[in-house]
Amino acid sequence: MDTSASRPLAARVPVVFAVAVLVVALDQATKFWAESTLPGRAPIPVLGEFLRFRLLYNPGAAFSIGAGSTWIFTIITAVAVVVLIRFALKPASGVQAVALSLLLGGAITHLLDRLFREPGFARGHVVDFIDYNGWFVGNVADIALFSGAVLLLVPALFGGEDQKKAED
């Protein structure tokens, strides 16, 4: 039986924020590395053409959608951070707590990029450098966001009766 939902809030807060802070630290450290190593270089193969390091600055959302609306994404991301903090402090399970913490860390680090990177406050571009076979270019925060979303969806889609019994 998972007792994380019955644990007091004070016991969950350090774990939730530790995971989120770890995501932010890893993401910002790897972006620092990318910005100091990759400018002006051809893509660096990691796994052949399938996975390469290539520096890009993304003013929009995923796949650079809405590149002219960076300030809107800044507002949406700030709201998402507040909502995620609220939900991360009340997870129904340990898996959900980790998932929400990953989402929170990814959202915070993207918000930091939008607030403090060029070209200016609330208009900053997200640093992307992990090129997935030319399909898209992302970063560590994107990996955390994807992983968090999968951790939330898989139990919801396939938990079925076991999840309902655990909730009862």
Score class of each variant (00 low, 15 high):
F129K: 02
S101E: 03
A149K: 04
D128V: 08
G106C: 12
F63V: 05
R123M: 05
A80L: 13
L51P: 02
W135N: 04
S147K: 02
G148C: 12
T74Q: 09
V154F: 07
W135G: 00
R54C: 07
G124V: 00
D162K: 13
P155W: 04
T77G: 12
V98Q: 06
S69F: 09
E161R: 13
A166Y: 03
L56Y: 04
P91T: 09
G40W: 05
A166S: 09
A78R: 05
K164S: 10
L47P: 01
P43Q: 11
K31W: 00
L145M: 14
R123E: 04
F146A: 11
R114S: 05
D142N: 09
L56C: 02
W71I: 15
A78N: 02
P14V: 06
S4F: 08
V140L: 14
L100T: 09
Q163P: 00
A18W: 05
S6F: 09
G66V: 07
S69M: 12
D142C: 12
F158E: 03
S101F: 02
F53R: 01
L153E: 00
D162W: 09
A144N: 12
G134S: 11
A78I: 00
D113A: 13
F158C: 04
W33T: 00
V13Q: 08
F136D: 02
R54S: 15
F50T: 13
E35V: 06
F116V: 00
A11F: 04
T109N: 09
A92R: 15
A29D: 00
I108Q: 04
A156L: 14
D27G: 10
K165Q: 05
A141N: 03
L26M: 14
A10C: 05
R7P: 00
A61E: 04
A61F: 10
A5F: 11
R117P: 01
G105V: 06
L9P: 00
T30S: 15
A62Y: 07
P14I: 08
S4I: 07
P119A: 10
L55Y: 05
G48D: 12
P155A: 02
V24H: 09
F53E: 15
F116N: 01
L100Y: 08
P155D: 14
F63G: 01
K90A: 13
V127A: 13
E167I: 08
F121C: 06
A11N: 05
A11C: 04
E118C: 03
F17P: 01
S93Y: 04
N58F: 07
A99L: 08
P39N: 08
D142G: 12
T77N: 15
S64M: 03
I65R: 14
A141C: 09
L55P: 01
A61H: 10
G148I: 10
V15R: 11
I143F: 11
P14Q: 08
S147C: 14
G94Q: 06
V79A: 15
A62C: 08
I143S: 14
A62I: 03
G105N: 08
A122C: 12
T74M: 10
I130A: 14
D168N: 11
D142M: 13
V23I: 11
F121M: 09
S6W: 03
R54M: 10
G106S: 10
L84C: 13
S101N: 08
L84R: 12
